[in-house]
């Protein structure tokens, strides 16, 4: 219980600077959910296995449960509430909805963050599937999630090759 000392940290959360005092042992997921009001901060296992808590830290998808909040000091964090930008957010939401990639919705924020990463980094479909394989879903049987991301990649390719 010597672990209750508070540390001052700050990070950018969806473009807004946050300044917080947190105990060293608290995970980023815990702090995003409890202190920052991010309802997408879903703890699925707390052991780094399931990826429900995936958030983007400095542009890379990270398991929020495996990162202490103090380690995120100075980082640029983006969650499923915002993703990279409003256009990407709207496109990903629409694709997930259209392809029935959501059932209970608990794993959905984590998959949205992965989809955002895939689009930003222009991954191939094979690479995208490998990336999406990081996270677990128990409802959908995954193939609707793959379809949603494939659709997003195809739409991006179309835009890219256009005038």
């Amino acid at each position: 219980m010597e672990d209750t000392e508070l540390h001052t940290i700050s990070f950018t959360l969806n473009g807004v600077t946050q300044r917080l005092r947190v105990a060293a042992r608290r995970s980023l997921t815990d702090v995003l959910g409890q202190e920052c009001g991010m309802k997408s901060a879903h703890m699925g296992c707390g052991q780094g296995d399931c990826g429900s808590c995936t958030v983007s830290v400095d542009g890379v998808p990270i398991r929020g449960c495996l990162l202490f909040a103090v380690q995120a000091d100075g980082a640029d964090i983006r969650t499923a509430e915002a993703l990279a930008n409003p256009d990407s957010l709207a496109a990903i939401r629409n694709a997930f909805k259209k392809h029935r990639a959501i059932q209970c919705g608990y794993c959905t924020p984590g998959f949205m963050v992965l989809a955002d990463y895939i689009l930003r980094n222009e991954l191939s479909l094979d690479q995208a599937i490998q990336t999406l394989s990081a996270n677990l879903c128990r409802c959908t049987g995954y193939s609707p999630i793959v379809s949603a991301v494939a659709d997003l990649l195809a739409a991006r390719a179309e835009r890219g090759s256009g005038p």
Partner: peptide, 21 residues
């Protein structure tokens, strides 16, 4: 038809018990 549940879940304005206080 599209699911009526999805907008709520996608906007993460959700009502999972973990986010209630």
């Amino acid at each position: 038809i599209d699911r009526v549940e999805d907008d709520d879940l996608l906007q993460a304005s959700t009502r999972f018990v973990g986010s209630l206080a």
